[in-house]
Amino acid sequence: MFVQRPDIRPATVEVLVDGAPVLVPEGASAAAAVLLAGLSAIRETPVTGAPRLPYCMMGVCFDCLAEIDGVANRQSCMVTVRPGMRIRPQHGAREAYRPEDAA
């Protein structure tokens, strides 16, 4: 669970996290909005359905895959929030395009 420090970084951008409005600072990532909203999981793993939240916040682990503005499998820690952005956790086996599968 993460909390804001509004005196230091005013929360001015409203986004929708799983349908609920959340105010976050400009420059925050969609993954940060999910953590600030207090969701217990951003996705469930395709293999065992285990809950995950972002692990690295810098584009390495891909544990933050979420649906953003209707597009699934976005790396939410690499997406900067915009007003009105819709961020939804994703469940199950919706797989990203995987290079090895194209081979």
Partner: peptide, 26 residues
């Protein structure tokens, strides 16, 4: 247990601080 929600890298927490001014609670 490193895949459990609530386990992150130290750098991830630092990124949240720099990018959003956010800190862990609890």
């Amino acid at each position: 247990g490193w895949t459990l929600p609530g386990v992150m890298t130290a750098g991830a927490a630092q990124i949240l601080l720099k990018q959003a001014g956010a800190v862990p609670k609890g």
